[in-house]
Design a protein around this nucleic acid. Structure first.
Length: 739
DNA sequence: AGCACGCCGACT
DNA sequence: GTCGGCGTGCTC
């Protein structure tokens, strides 16, 4: 006898788990994971929709009480079942439970939706109702009294409010309905976010010669039976969006739909307006401010065919379009495309998988492609399409690299080098604008020498060591530990330590050095409130300030034609993080930052301050030379077996009890050694995660590298079983990350 | 979410 | 005693 694990509609927390059902003989062949079935559920055996997530031989429940699957759902749920198949793929690839995978893929209804869906209206005689209320008051019908009083006052009530807060269940409502006093109404009300000023404008899509060539190249690829994903490699300002628009137009014309993925931070009013101007009400936009109910509504509109284009962040990838034609991924290299929650999927890979299953195409674009995407383009797995010309032939800004070690020798200890200071006063004199950029995202407290630029690195992993309590240095990959040296091991200088400067300090220095300049600061603190992000950028755009100081957020989006100077305070901040991506991230950030200067008529200038002027990420960003950067960085990845040269699985463990966690990680390590052949094993750790403790929960990581992804997947599956069987892991939260 | 079960107050 | 509203808890 075989049994199926079925998830009943994902609508309520309480039924958010799998239930076992018997498979009738005649459905034996059809039932497999991903199939949508109809099953009897609950006391009244009401028929409900369910998703089969697995088939087993063993009954986990009292056999006599297991019910039978009624039928395979026949109503045309192809969109849904395709998404379920995608969830199954995500579960296999990234490691998670089927429930977690389904939850990320299928739109989840929530309470907000139910509230607005069912409304109760008062529709009887007011006089009669008041008499009835009189009659009811003090009687035993307390729920009826409560309810009548409330509806008389409000005239209209939400169903969930009536049943939960007033305790007026079905029986109470029945009573009033029979009397003809109330009317229940199912309201299908969409919550469309405020978009009154977003309308279609009459605009022709004008492509330049180069963009036209790119479009033709892509169309040619699409004619192939097995069209490859396209990597659109175009420098900043080469007009990638124009190309996307043209492609989307084509897809819509063919009666298909398109999804456009955009990093959350770039989802500004400007971007959204461009899409509305082009496609009018065919477009729907998702953003993270949307409640789950609002997102659900947008997905529903897509499913019904009311919109043809969905624009949004990572999660827009799961828009239930019935005839998907194209998925566009803008700024493909952005780290926000990787999910932080289980399943830790990457939107690029998942988009390609979805496109493969639904015979759609993928086009991704970037000025600084991720190593992963570019290496695939080089190998021919993706089609590489280039856009080289900068808008209106604007020259690239002139870039100078300032060696901060020299500044120290000259006795300048300020965060502003002599050159940057001079450039700033020149810019102010000409009444132009400047941006100062502090790239300290996820700043991990590396230690470097101010005199020679030497960075303390792990001898085994070649990533920066992090300072702990000011006395010890720790590697967050393998756990290597050493005492923090008092003098630089390379040059003997005592000027060794962490870099301590925030945007506030820079703001203070600017106030002192340039008291006449108007300075705006943009960082996590100043953008906490809603819309403040847009407000600051808009103010700067109107030239209400001369200098904008900020973290990564200032280098994305918005064009400021009056900005002629970009200063990078300390390029090393993102260069010396404790993971293997940092060279790539630094190159991307610096390239973007440099590209911000001189977007208008006036030529631009950029100053990059660093302790490591010879580093290839910085040199290549200064010359905007992607090829050079790619060669160096790929060499490093190949040497160290980091992705994309190999695959890496990270096992992440968290637990309140540090000892228990360490023990568990040790057992995991021992288990992996036992189940895998020695020569293929490339394990690092276990070690404390880069944030070793959050809210009293300890965190540890273990990395496993191998050229073959299948090997890692096999290890993960064995490990998942091992963890499930051993109750010792119950108290430990375990997460997998595959890259 | 939807349904049954069982408690408890009120009426016969 | 019994009837029925109303809160609680379970659903393979």
């Amino acid at each position: 006898m075989t049994y199926a694990d079925v998830i009943i509609d994902i609508s309520h927390e309480k039924v958010d788990r799998d239930f076992q059902y018997r498979i009738p003989d005649e459905l034996e062949q059809e039932i497999k994971p991903g199939v949508v079935v109809t099953v009897p559920f609950g006391k009244g055996n009401t028929l409900r929709k369910g998703y089969v997530i697995g088939v087993t031989e063993k009954a986990k429940y009292d056999t006599s009480r297991i019910k039978m699957i009624q039928s395979v759902s026949t109503d045309d749920e192809t969109t849904e079942s395709r998404l379920i198949a995608l969830a199954a793929w995500m579960k296999e690839t990234y490691g998670s439970t089927m429930i977690q995978a389904l939850k990320t893929v299928l739109p989840v209804k929530d309470k907000i939706r139910a509230k607005e869906k069912r409304l109760i209206f008062f529709c009887g005689e007011r006089q009669a109702a008041e008499e009835l209320l009189e009659e009811l008051s003090g009687s035993r019908f307390r729920a009826r009294e409560r309810f009548l009083r409330a509806i008389l006052e409000a005239g209209r009530l939400e169903y969930t409010y009536a049943s939960k807060e007033l305790g007026a269940g079905a029986s109470v409502l029945d009573f009033f309905e029979k009397k003809g006093m109330i009317r229940l109404e199912n309201q299908e009300m969409y919550r469309i976010p405020n978009q009154a000023d977003l309308v279609k404008e009459d605009c022709e899509l004008c492509l330049n010669a180069e963009q036209n060539v790119a479009v033709k190249q892509i169309f040619r690829e699409w004619k192939e039976p097995e069209a490859r994903p396209v990597l659109l490699f175009g420098v900043t300002g080469s007009g990638k969006t124009q190309v996307y628009m043209r492609l989307i137009q084509q897809v819509i014309q063919e009666g298909k739909q398109a999804i456009v993925l955009i990093p959350e931070i770039a989802l500004t009013y400007q971007t959204v307006r461009r899409f509305y101007a082009m496609f009018g009400d065919k477009v729907s936009v998702l953003n993270s401010r949307l409640s789950q109910g609002e997102r659900y509504d947008q997905f529903k509109r897509a499913k019904r065919g009311e919109v043809q284009v969905m624009v949004g962040p990572r999660s827009a990838l799961f828009t239930p379009f019935s005839n998907l034609g194209l998925i566009v991924i803008d700024e493909e290299h952005e780290s926000t495309y990787k999910s932080e929650n289980t399943p830790r999927y990457h939107a690029r890979e998942t988009a390609i998988q979805r496109a493969r299953m639904e015979h759609a195409n993928v086009v991704m674009g970037s000025a600084t492609p991720s190593l992963s995407a570019y290496s695939r383009a080089e190998s021919g797995e993706y089609l590489l399409v280039k856009l080289n010309a900068r808008y209106k032939e604007r020259p690239l800004p002139q870039v100078s690299i300032v060696d901060l070690r020299e500044e120290l020798k000259k006795g300048n200890r300020s965060v502003l080098s002599t050159e940057l200071k001079a450039s700033l006063s020149e810019t102010l004199r000409k009444k132009e604008q400047a941006m100062l950029f502090l790239n300290r995202r996820g700043y991990a407290g590396f230690v470097s020498c101010r005199a020679c630029g030497h960075v303390m690195k792990c001898p085994h992993c070649d990533v920066s060591l992090s300072e702990h309590n000011g006395r010890r240095l720790i590697c967050h990959y393998c756990g290597y530990e050493t005492v923090k040296p008092q003098v630089c091991p390379s040059c003997g200088s005592p000027h060794i330590g962490g870099f301590k400067a925030g945007t506030q300090q820079i703001e203070k220095v600017l106030e002192k050095d340039f008291p006449e300049a108007r300075v705006l600061r943009m960082d996590f603190d100043t953008t906490r409130t809603k819309d403040s992000y847009e407000k600051i950028l808009a103010a700067f755009s109107r030239h209400e300030a001369d200098i904008l100081v900020g973290t990564q957020m200032i280098v994305k989006g918005h064009d400021f034609p009056d900005v002629t100077l970009v200063g990078v305070i300390a390029a090393d901040l993102s260069l010396n993080m404790d993971d293997y991506h940092c060279g790539e991230r630094t190159f991307q950030l610096l390239t973007q930052a440099v590209g911000r200067a001189g977007r208008g008529v006036k030529p631009g200038h950029a100053v990059i301050q660093t302790y490591q002027p010879e580093h290839y990420s910085i040199r290549a960003a200064a010359t905007q030379d992607y090829a050079e950067f790619y060669k160096e960085e790929m060499g490093y990845r190949l040497l160290m077996d980091y992705p994309p040269a190999a695959h890496m699985m990270t096992i992440f463990g968290a637990c309140q009890d540090e000892e228990l966690l360490k023990k568990a990680m040790y057992y995991i390590e021992a288990f992996i050694c036992r189940v895998s052949p020695k020569e293929e094993l490339h394990m690092i750790g276990p070690a404390a995660a880069s944030v070793g403790k959050v809210k009293d929960v300890y965190r540890q990581v273990l990395h496993l590298k191998n050229v073959d992804m299948a090997f890692l997947t096999a290890v993960r599956e064995k490990l998942e079983q091992y963890i499930e069987i051993n109750s010792g892991f119950r108290k430990i939260y375990i997460q997998f990350d595959m890259s």
